[in-house]
Nucleic acid binder design. Structure first.
Lengths: 113, 113
DNA sequence: ATTGTATTTCGTGAAAATACGAATAATTCT
DNA sequence: AGAATTATTCGTATTTTCACGAAATACAAT
């Protein structure tokens, strides 16, 4: 085997993968949709929309925060969550770029699964 | 706790999450980029670009096939891989839609991580 | 001060992802 | 036929994800 591996992954690819991971669970997609429509939203309201235990929803929110897509405010009396808009736009831009890369068409016909 | 959970996740959210999962590893992003630029490409060439063991690359390819983004041809003498263009466009369209949802701006200032 | 409400953290368990090398199958070359 | 090449599958180990309920924390209301 002509083993001439490249050393590491590109920084942009790592970023895309990171965002993709944050989006890789339907509950997290649902949370983002909900937050997007709400300006700001307390945990309670989010949790009611998601068919999972509160503690699990909390974990998913933590994932989204880890990826930077969501922020939690300290506005009393409730903790409020909202989208991190700049990060959201950064993510959109990353995926926009990725999905608009030129894809060469194959000519072969015999394709299997 | 006012437990009025919705039953399930939306079909579209499930699809987005599924694609996102396929994209959630930098090796798989790198593989897709490589395939996009190559029209068609044997395993060998892909594997040389990815800093992981052959068997691991094979696994990542299997993930991409599972998500439908990649196909393997049976063109001798080598097995050739290429992007599934229709699926790729479907994915782009899904993400396009998702990322262009309207996001209400929050007014609160006091935000924590 | 006690109760209630809201949210997170902790502990746990089960399942899936990631990675590797060895073994295997299939094909090509000698 | 036998050897080399190509790619996948298998077996295994480690880590991470996902989910839950119970416990902990923090704050508001009584």
């Amino acid at each position: 085997m002509a083993s001439s591996k490249k050393e590491i992954f590109g920084e942009e690819d790592i970023q895309i993968a990171k965002i993709a991971k944050a989006l890789s669970h339907p509950a997290r997609i649902a949370i983002l949709r909900h937050l997007a429509g709400m300006d700001c939203c307390c945990f309670n309201k989010i949790s009611d929309e998601i068919p999972l235990a509160d503690s699990t929803v909390s974990q998913h929110l933590a994932e989204l925060k880890k990826a930077g897509l969501v922020q939690g405010s300290i506005e009393p009396p409730r903790i409020q969550y909202c989208m991190n808009i700049s990060k959201w736009e950064e993510a959109r831009s990353l995926f926009d770029g990725f999905f608009s890369m030129e894809v060469k068409k194959y000519k072969k016909e015999t394709i299997r699964g």
